[in-house]
Amino acid sequence: MSSEPRVVIVTGGSRGLGAGLVRSYLESGDRVATCARSITPEVEAWQKDPELADRFFFLPADLSQRVEAEAFVKGVVAQWDHVDVLINNAGVARDGILGLTSDDDIDTVIDLNLKGTLYVTRLVSRRMLARHSGTIVNVSSIVGRSGYRGLAVYSATKAALDGLTRALARELGSRGITVNGIAPGYLRTEMSHGLDEEQLQQIVRRTPSGRLGDPEDIARACQFLTDPRNTYLTGQILVVDGGLTG
């Protein structure tokens, strides 16, 4: 097995689950590139850490804009030549009953969660094809399977990502590229801030493991799926939700 650090892209890695994924891959010795619309204290800390000088790359980018998605991927390739692992994590949620949802909110969620993911994956998978290797993980959500009142658009995009995972696994499998998904349950991140305390406690009561998830729970599953020894597990969606939907 090569001792060269892997080149890992984590989209939307400036906060919450994405930052947890970035941290995990930095800790496993990989080179990690991430992007977000704005910089955060976590990103600044990684940028200033001398030990990460040649292992962390950040570019501000709104992936819902095709040109910015292209600039980000080209920036990573210019820096490190190729991409071994792509983790499509960037996403946004807008809560509210669909009947009252604005056009702008529908566009915002679909443009980033779905179109942004497609833009980045198209660019990265082309390069993985040329190398006959690579692994892709799409971070969806259990609400893409079970639904959630007030998250219709978000749920639709996450269900779409599961479809993307299965289709791409079939498309790229013959070239040694694995494509899997992770469907997290409810996590202690900004993404759950739309839920009030009563809703969160209700979720905890219904969850066999008796707690909300942490980004580290998802990162461990992601590391498993992207392990270079994993060449046979592909096209699957791994639900990591403490048993909530089991």
Binding site: R126, R127, L129, A130, E171, L172, S174, R175
Partner: peptide, 13 residues
């Protein structure tokens, strides 16, 4: 189609 996509990436590189 996959080989064509691969050629496309090679030429872009």
């Amino acid at each position: 189609s996959l080989e064509t996509a691969e050629l496309s990436a090679v030429l872009e590189d």
